[in-house]
Structures are given as structure tokens and as C-alpha cells.
């Protein structure tokens, strides 16, 4: 795998964000970031009788924060409330000291990659990102679009119609459109969905670069390992509530005694399953057929370290590795119970 060339610096316009309004963080509460740029205060969101988000108080600051939780946990709803696309039923949201529902100028400093496919299929990648730059008020939208497309390694396909893009390429186009105006706050809802391993590496590298330059990056995911690769802080949600928050290692430690299950696909699967039985971190192995193996572990990190080595030693080809969603949900439920 070759490293992509370093991207050119993003254009300086529009103007830098205004000074942040002080949001006093209760230091003892890990749900609050030290230097918050975006904050939710007792936010709830109801859709009829359904409670999507329940009394969540959390803030995010510079760096990458992973918003983690199983499907249906309320991550997307919380992100859409934070971005101002949904009106909170209760509570308030502040982005860079402003209410995004009232002050739309805040969108000069905010970018969102929604989960849904928010693209215009008949546009080319370049036109799509250029459109975003024009709407952000750039005087040279083409240049900004080229820079953003380079940031996500999509410049080679920039003149192809979005309709012909793969899901991963569409995700990258959405990311380029979200960061074309160099926002101080970037909100990403499952940005790695549909991307292949190489694309993931490129995107994660781009998010890390933004974090290193003081941007606030919020990445939602239901896959812990995915978030671990980029985030330093984690906020976990279950059933619309905050389940856990804090440094990734603290969360990891809180999860250490919880049985965890992953499904992997390998060719051939049987020798790998046999070998995994001897790994101390593995509590149980079940052959599921068609090369799939379900592994129950008490230490997901140790398993993640041991697995590639075992596969290499046995000459086994690993084609798929993912934590079971139900398992992740049970982990979070455990954390909720601990609070």
C-alpha cells in the first residue's frame, strides 16, 4: 500500500470561526470535553411516543471523538440534533457558542457527513464538491473542490458521475463536500460504511490530520475497533442514553471483563478455529459453516493481536472480521448497568 501524497493546504476562506463562548465543563464528568466546541445540554428527542435520545448532556472538543453504540442507540439522532437538522424536544445545543437552529452562519464552521446517501447522482464528484464550496461562499470553488477531493484521494475519479460511484467512493465524496470549507467541527455519521480497507486507511488518515490541526471531529460507528483506530475519546450510547464516556483506554478497561463475540470468515476455517481454542483470550469457538467462525473472547485486543499471527502461521486467508452487533449491544448494556 502506498501512502497518498500529502494534500495541499486547504484554502483559508471563509473567515476563521469566532471565539468560542465559554461552556463551563464539569471537569469530573467524562462526558464533557476540556475545550468544548459543540455541546448538548440535557438534550432529549422524541418522535411521537418513541424516545430516540433521552436527557443527554455531552460535549466535544478538538481531536477525534468516537460516538459508539449499537444500531438504534440514538447516535444518528444525536448527531442530527447537534448539527441542527432536528429540533431537540428538550434541552439545548450549542455549536461554537451559537444555536445552529437560529444562527445559520455557524455552518461556515460545521461539516456533516450524514448516514444517508445525500448526493446528486447526475453530478460528477467535482461538481458535487464544487457546489458545496459555492454554497459556502467561496470565490474560487473549483480550487477548494480539487483540494478536498485530493484530501479523500478521489481526484482521479472527480469527473465521473456520482451515479457510477461505488458506495465507498460516494462516502468519500460526501466527506470531501463536508470538509471543502475547512470546518472547525466535522460530524461524521458512520463515515466508513461501505468503504474497503484501503479507503478506510485513507479516510482515517484524513480525519487524523484534521484532528491534529485542532479540528473537532466526531465519528459515529457501531464498530468499536473502527473507532479505536482513530479516536482518543469515546462517547457510548445505548437506548438513547449515554452509556459511557471518556478516554478510550478507560472504556476499554471497563469493558475488559465482558465476554465479547466476533464473527470471522477464513479459508480454511477449521484449522484456524482449532488453533484459536488454545489462545488464552478466547473463551469459545463455534464453526458456523461456509468458512465462518464465531469467537467468544474476554479480551478483544488480545484476540485482535493474536489472530493475524495465527492466520499467517497456518497459511489461512482471513476475509472478514467483525464484532457481532448484539455482542456490542450487550457490552454497552453492561456499561449502562455499571453506571
Amino acid at each position: 500500500m502506498t501512502a497518498p501524497p500529502p494534500p495541499p493546504p486547504m484554502p483559508a476562506e471563509p473567515a476563521a470561526p469566532p471565539p468560542l463562548e465559554a461552556i463551563p465543563p464539569p471537569v469530573a464528568n467524562p462526558a464533557y470535553a476540556a475545550n468544548p466546541t459543540i455541546a448538548a445540554d440535557s438534550v432529549s428527542k422524541f418522535f411521537g411516543q418513541k424516545v430516540a435520545v433521552s436527557n443527554v448532556s455531552v460535549s466535544f472538543g478538538p481531536g477525534i471523538t468516537g460516538l459508539l453504540g449499537p444500531n438504534g442507540a440514538g447516535k444518528t439522532t444525536l448527531l442530527r440534533v447537534l448539527a441542527g437538522l432536528l429540533v431537540p424536544s428538550e434541552g439545548a445545543v450549542t455549536v461554537l457558542g451559537r444555536n445552529p437552529r437560529r444562527d445559520h452562519s455557524v455552518y461556515r464552521d460545521v461539516g456533516l457527513v450524514p448516514e444517508e446517501s445525500s448526493i446528486y447522482p447526475s453530478m460528477t464528484g467535482r461538481e458535487y464538491v464544487e457546489y458545496a464550496a459555492k454554497l459556502a461562499g467561496f470565490s474560487k470553488p473549483r480550487l477548494a473542490a480539487i483540494n478536498a477531493l485530493q484530501e479523500v484521494s478521489l481526484e482521479q475519479d472527480a469527473d465521473r458521475e456520482l451515479a457510477g460511484y461505488s458506495k465507498g467512493m460516494r462516502q468519500r465524496a460526501k466527506v470531501a463536500a463536508a470538509l471543502v470549507h475547512d470546518p472547525a467541527v466535522l460530524i461524521l455519521d458512520e463515515p466508513l460504511n461501505g468503504t474497503d480497507p484501503v479507503q478506510r486507511v485513507h479516510l482515517i488518515r484524513a480525519f487524523k490530520r484534521l484532528a491534529e490541526t485542532g479540528h473537532t471531529v466526531i465519528v459515529s460507528s457501531h464498530v468499536l475497533q473502527e473507532v479505536e483506530r482513530m479516536a482518543t475519546r469515546i462517547v457510548a450510547m445505548v437506548d438513547g442514553r449515554l452509556a459511557a464516556a471518556g478516554d478510550i483506554h478507560a472504556i476499554r478497561s471497563a469493558m475488559s471483563d465482558i465476554p465479547y463475540r466476533v464473527t470471522l470468515t477464513a479459508e480454511p476455517a477449521r484449522p484456524l478455529a482449532r488453533e484459536l481454542m488454545g489462545v488464552p483470550a478466547v473463551d469459545g469457538v463455534t464453526l458456523l459453516g461456509k468458512g465462518s467462525v464465531s469467537v467468544q473472547t474476554n479480551d478483544i485486543t488480545a484476540l485482535g493481536t493474536a489472530l493475524p499471527k495465527i492466520a499467517k502461521d497456518l497459511g489461512v486467508r482471513l476475509t472478514h472480521y467483525s464484532p457481532d452487533d448484539e455482542s456490542l449491544e450487550s457490552v454497552f448494556r453492561h456499561l449502562v448497568g455499571k453506571r
Binding site: P14, L85, H104, S105, Y107, V110, S118, A132, L135, A136
Partner: peptide, 15 residues
């Protein structure tokens, strides 16, 4: 219906 409304609404433009 095409889910592009959020693309438009997340820009620094008055309604």
C-alpha cells in the same frame, strides 16, 4: 425524498 435536503440545509445560508 432524495436525501439531499441536508446537503442544502447545512450551508451558511438563510432559509
Amino acid at each position: 425524498r432524495g436525501n439531499t435536503m441536508s446537503f442544502l440545509m447545512l450551508r451558511p445560508l438563510s432559509r
